[in-house]
Simulated scan of single mutants.
Amino acid sequence: MNRMSRSAGAPGFALVVPLLVVMAVGFNLPLLLMLGKSVVGESGLTLDHFAELFRVPAYLQVLGSTFRTALITAVFCVLLGYPLAYWLRGLPPRWQMVALAAVVVPFWVSILVRTYAWIVVLGNAGIVNRTLQALGWADEPVAFLYNQLGVVIGTVNVLLPFLVLPLFAAMLKIDPQLIRAAETLGASHWTAFRRVFFPLSLPALAAGAILVFILTLGFYITPAILGGGRVPMIANMLDLLVNQQPNWELASTISTVLLGVTLVLFVMYLRLTAQRESA
């Protein structure tokens, strides 16, 4: 029996081997080379690149700006996404499909197009500023763009569905009988939500927030366009170090730090996802 199972599994493994080779050569090998450059210097193994990274204020400023932008984006996605997902949950099935389509449709539009659309809406001569000036609410254009506010607005617009869709799916799995049971026992609707529904949806909310945070760390197009070069981000600095200077060692060091942070957050995301599925 064991011989038959081995002979049956061998052809399947042989079909997977080419994919494993492609993954190893196309992804794992460059990743290992990058990690190697971060700890290898002219005299052999060294941590001088990491010391330079944390010694130079400009690099720390970029790291701080990136993590701050990612945190603000995650917070706004939570504040906007949770009420939206909760509202979607309460809609009739037909209207749920319509509302979900409205959430998913932006995925069909290029991020580049959606980013430039914000310039049309929020630019100095954009729709919002012209409306504010026409109503007399502003004497001069409001600086919505080319600062951290513009980057956050564009990033939230792109990443909000990544929180809303899985959070909505998790909310649908919460048994409505639990809410009714709490209300039957004397709890108000708000108390039932606060004591029963929200704790059950919290793991999915936290997992979605971590996912948005991770995706923001590597954003390039939106900060480059809506930030106007005034909001330093890790991806933009890596482009500078690789294509203009170049300084592959320092770029590899920054990438290694970003990879380490991302892996830690990804492990947290997996644990929260597993907790949500087991609930």
Rank of each mutant, 00 (worst) to 15 (best):
G26D: 10
V156T: 07
T191G: 00
V267A: 13
F50V: 08
E277F: 10
R55K: 15
P30R: 00
V109E: 05
W137E: 06
G12L: 13
Q61S: 11
R68C: 11
A181S: 13
A134K: 09
Q148G: 03
A206F: 13
V105M: 10
N147V: 02
Y269S: 02
P161G: 10
V16I: 13
S278H: 05
V156A: 11
P106C: 08
H49Y: 15
Y82E: 02
Q133V: 06
V40P: 00
L226Q: 11
P232L: 04
A8L: 15
F144V: 03
G90I: 01
I119S: 03
P57Y: 08
F67N: 02
A70M: 08
A70I: 06
N247C: 02
L240M: 07
T69H: 00
A58N: 06
V257I: 10
E52P: 00
V103I: 15
G12P: 02
V120G: 10
L178Y: 01
P203G: 08
G12D: 00
P93M: 01
G41T: 02
V121S: 03
V21P: 03
F67P: 02
L165M: 14
N147R: 04
R89D: 12
I221R: 03
A134Y: 08
A51Q: 13
R271P: 02
G136W: 07
V151N: 07
F107L: 05
F76A: 04
V103L: 12
G12N: 04
V242N: 11
L238K: 08
V56T: 13
T184L: 10
A235W: 10
V152G: 07
I254L: 15
V156W: 03
L29N: 03
E52K: 11
T73C: 13
L71I: 12
L91C: 07
G64D: 12
P223F: 10
L178M: 14
F54C: 02
N243A: 12
G44A: 05
P176A: 01
L32R: 01
Y269F: 14
L149Q: 14
F76T: 04
L163T: 05
V62I: 14
E140L: 06
F193E: 07
A14H: 00
P30S: 01
V142Q: 09
F266A: 12
P223L: 06
Y59K: 05
A204H: 08
L19G: 14
L165T: 03
Y86R: 15
I127K: 00
V109K: 04
A58W: 06
L79I: 12
I127S: 05
L19D: 03
F144C: 12
I179N: 09
L205N: 04
